[in-house]
Every structure is written in structure tokens, then in C-alpha cells.
Simulated scan of single mutants.
Amino acid sequence: MSLDQNDIAKLARLARINIAETETAELSERIGDILNMVDAMQAVDTANVVAMANPHDAIQRLRADEVTESNHREKFQQIAPQTADGLYLVPQVIE
């Protein structure tokens, strides 16, 4: 896919960047190469490819999900300005 100077000017305006007219030819070629690469990647048949989470088939060791600290809610809420039913009450800021 090739881009002309009008396409480059439109992209520059949308991206809010300043591109000198002397750079548009090179930029057009570079963006065209990227778009050709994307087209080539989209042409690959991936229907029978299984998705993977890790390219090395590594398995991450996870620790057991255990509670390691005691509950200090009542201690912390003693110094709070206002609480109700175990929740902190705050002033309403949005009407």
C-alpha cells in the first residue's frame, strides 16, 4: 500500500505533528513498508493455531492463596471520623 503526500499531511494533522515537506517522501515509503508488513501478517492462515500464554510453555509457580495477616479493621476504625457497619463514611462530594 502506498501513501501520497495528501495522506501523509492528513495523518500529520490527525497526530498533531509537524512534518516537513522534504520528509514526506521518506515517511510515505516507511509507512507503506509497515502497512505491507501488516498485510502480509494478516494473510497468514491462523485458523489451526492454538493460542498460548507463554511462547516457552513455561508454567508460573503460584503461592497458595492464604490469609497471612490478622484483621485490624476495628482498631483502624477507632480513629476514623465516622464509620457505620464496618465501613468508612465520607462526606458526599457529588450531588
Rank of each mutant, 00 (worst) to 15 (best):
Q78N: 09
N48Y: 01
L87M: 14
T83S: 10
M1Q: 11
Q78A: 13
L11K: 02
A47F: 01
L87P: 02
L27R: 06
A15R: 12
T22E: 08
F76C: 05
A9W: 00
I79F: 04
I19N: 00
M41E: 12
M41A: 09
V90M: 10
L27S: 03
T24K: 15
D45W: 05
I31N: 01
I17P: 03
R61F: 08
A40F: 07
K10S: 06
L62E: 10
A84H: 09
D85C: 01
A51Q: 11
A20Y: 03
A12G: 02
N71Y: 06
G32K: 04
A25H: 08
Q77T: 07
D4P: 04
Y88P: 00
I19L: 09
D57T: 11
D57S: 12
L11C: 00
V38E: 14
G32E: 05
I94C: 02
L87S: 07
R13M: 05
V49K: 09
A53P: 10
L3Y: 11
A9M: 05
G86S: 10
L14N: 13
L27H: 01
L62S: 10
L62K: 14
N18W: 09
A40G: 14
Q5F: 06
R16H: 03
K75D: 09
A53I: 07
V50N: 10
L35G: 07
E23T: 12
L89C: 03
V49N: 05
N36Y: 04
E23N: 15
I31A: 06
D45H: 11
T46S: 09
S28Q: 07
A12H: 03
I17D: 02
L11V: 01
E21N: 15
A25E: 15
S70C: 05
I79Q: 09
D4I: 12
Q78H: 07
A47S: 15
D39S: 14
Q60D: 10
R73M: 06
A51L: 08
E95Q: 12
Q77R: 11
V90H: 04
E69I: 07
T68K: 15
N36I: 02
Q78W: 01
A20D: 14
S2I: 07
Q60V: 15
Q92W: 00
F76H: 13
V38H: 05
D33H: 04
E69K: 13
T22R: 08
Q60A: 09
N6T: 11
R16F: 00
E29P: 01
I8Q: 00
A51H: 11
S70E: 15
L35S: 12
D39F: 02
V44Q: 08
S70G: 14
H56S: 10
H56L: 13
Q42G: 13
Q5H: 08
Y88T: 14
T46N: 09
A58M: 13
D7G: 04
A53S: 14
M52D: 09
A47P: 03
T22D: 07
N18V: 14
A64Q: 12
L14T: 11
E74Y: 03
V50C: 04
E23L: 09
A9L: 04
D7N: 13
E26G: 08
N54E: 12
R63D: 13
V93T: 15
T83W: 01
K10Q: 11
I59D: 11
A12E: 03
